[in-house]
Structures are given as C-alpha cells and as structure tokens.
Nucleic acid binder design. Sequence first.
DNA 1: GCACGATATTGATCACTGTTCAATTAAAAT
DNA 2: ATTTTAATTGAACAGTGATCAATATCGTGC
Lengths: 197, 197
Amino acid sequence: MGRRSDHSREELRALIVAEGHRQMAEVGFAKFSAREVAKAIGYSIGTLYNVFGSYDQLILAINGHTLDLWLADLEAKLDSLPASRLRAAIDAYFDFALGNRNAWTALYDFRLPADEVMPEDYRIKVTAITEVVVREIRSELPTEHAGEAPALARSLLATVHGHCYFALNGTFALLGEQDPLAAALDRVDDALARFKS
Amino acid sequence: MGRRSDHSREELRALIVAEGHRQMAEVGFAKFSAREVAKAIGYSIGTLYNVFGSYDQLILAINGHTLDLWLADLEAKLDSLPASRLRAAIDAYFDFALGNRNAWTALYDFRLPADEVMPEDYRIKVTAITEVVVREIRSELPTEHAGEAPALARSLLATVHGHCYFALNGTFALLGEQDPLAAALDRVDDALARFKS
DNA sequence: GCACGATATTGATCACTGTTCAATTAAAAT
DNA sequence: ATTTTAATTGAACAGTGATCAATATCGTGC
C-alpha cells in the first residue's frame, strides 16, 4: 500500500500513542510490545518504526502522554476549591499513581540509553509538573522564604515520590505501613515547619 | 555430559549469582541476559533454568545478593565510629546506590508477577535493612517516642529513597538540584524535629 | 568389574521480541 | 499519462526467555 487518506501523519502519531498508552496501562512496562500496538490499530510494525524511529522514542511518546494526563489531573483537582491546595496536590499525586499503576510506573521503569538525549518537549512536561508544586509550596511559605520554594519543592517531590513508589511496589506492605499517604503528608508538614514560627 | 565434580549444587548456585550480579552491575536490568551469564561461567542455558526454575527467580537471587552487599556495606560504615550514626546511615545509602547504580536500580526495576510469591529469604533481607534504620532512629528519638521509631523509619526510608532515586535517574539534574544528599538530610532533620522539645 | 538407577547437563526447538529495509502501493505533481 | 514523492508493508535477522527429550556422568549394590 501507499499513502492512506484516513490518517495524517500527526493523527497517526496520536493514534499510536493513545493505543500504546492503553496497552501500557493494561500490561505494564515489562510486557509491553510495539507489535501488539501495531496490530491493534491495523498497521504493520514497520509503520511504527517509520513514525517513531525506535522503540525508545515510542516509549518516550507514551510516557509523555502519561505526563500530560498527570498534569491535567493535578490541575483539575487543584481547581476544585480544596481546603489546602498543597494537600490536594499530594492527594492527587497518590490518586493518579494508584489509579494508573502501570502507566505511572513506566515513567520510572524506562531509562533512556546514555547516548540518547531526552527530547525537549519531554523535559518541559516533567518541569511543568514540578512548577505546579513550586507554586503551591511558595504560597504556603512565609514571604521571606519564597526564594527557597524551588529547592523545597524538588525535595518534597522526591519525598512524596518515595512514599508513593513504596506504596505501589509493595515495600510498604512488606514493612507493615498501613497509610503511606498520611506518612507523606507528615513529612511535608515537618518540612514546612522548618520555615514557620 | 552429566554430573560434574567441580561444583556442588550449592556452589553452582553461588557461582551463577556472583556472575549474574557482575553482569547486572555492568549492563543493567534492561540489557541483562541469562544466556550471557551461562556463557560466562561455561554452562548451558538449560542448567540455569534447572537451578533457578525461571528468569524471575534468577533475578530475585541476584537482587538478594545485592541486598546482602548493601546491608554489609551499611553496617560496616556504621561501625566506623561516625559522629552521627543516622547521618552515616544515610550517607551509606547514597554511597551504595551511586557506587552500584545498575545493581541497586535493578532492585526496583524488577517486579514479581502478581501470581508469584516473594521468597521468604528475600523478605528477610529487605526487613534487615529496615531494622538497621529503625535502630538508629530509635536511638535518636526521645525515649517517650521510641514506639514511633518503626513508622518513622519506614517513612524516612521512603524519603531517602525518593531523593536517591531522583539523583540516579536524572530527575534532580533536570530540575536543577545540585545536592540531593543534603536535601535528604534536611528532610530527616525536619522529621526528627517533630519529636524534640 | 559391571550394571543399574539417580542426577546433572545439554542444546535444538519454540514463540516471541526489537529492528531493518528493499519492494510495493497510492497519491500528488508535472 | 507519466513521473515523482511519500506511505506502508512484511519477510528477514539476531536476540530473548522457556522447554524438554536425549545424553553423560556419578554413586551404589552386587
């Protein structure tokens, strides 16, 4: 066959990413297969490689889509008039990870080979999620400490990530931790206390 | 061929794990291959499957060995008369992860399929590392709060893990964080402050 | 010494994976 | 109508985890 009018290049890209994300959510990173994605949308494996160039770039596109969904989810929950916006953001972090186990975990299962560079648009997506946290932390900090918001946001992101990761991978269950979210919230409170009084 | 006198079953197991760990450290989880391990020690792929039963069990054995090394490293550094033992433990956490990138990361890259049960000896290894942290945290806590040491240890383990993971996978570099260890230590101090005064 | 049973080891075989690329098709331009 | 350009294919390749009948070796009893 040749040129097919039913999908522009852009549409095809989006179609592959959407189906890829669906399958990633279903089977997880370890069992994900590019061939299965091609089969599901009625294209051949070769077409996927023409569009994305490599398996790694396909995964990056799928993970990028997960980041898009994550950011949208985060901002939606922040717009729902919560008592504490920072607390809502952490709730949302856990919610999204637990509700999108495989897709969220794939964000960290995948690591770009050392010789490949991360696409700019992917960096932007990661940064965008951080910016949301920076903003909320800054608004919770005394104004004289506003400048420390970015560094604190990075650190608290790592803190929440660690709790969320241990909740998902079974480490917390193994250690008898019943309420990972509450533990994460306590650590955030502890960090904020440093800047109050 | 048949029985070979040069290796008992136990020795062969240890040989495979040692070489497997070596290769895991060299190539990482994604590029790890059981066939390559077999080739390196002069056995066939079939023998590896006879000894371990499955790929997953082989990985578990290798990761178990990494946990052994990790615990030994941790305790050695705690025995070196440090000013603060808790701080030494966190230093050791980062040291080991940074010095054993691929092997350490494989601990989290691998996830047991839902239908398989984690071997008891693996659970014990994970718990053993936690126990060390519980002990050091308890000794840093006012005696009236000693009972909260286990929960706090789990939470701080997750906190340090999150910082360490972001340091290794490039997230912190992407976000401009220069000193992940210092950030982790700050979060631990913040948490301990909750129980003082 | 011999034969037999128990155990260890093999590697061909299978189904699958990511990856490549000459061949083919169809649309657009001339 | 012809040529050019772009899209699509799928067979082919090298690699993977997994299986298992066949084979080789050892230990033991006779």
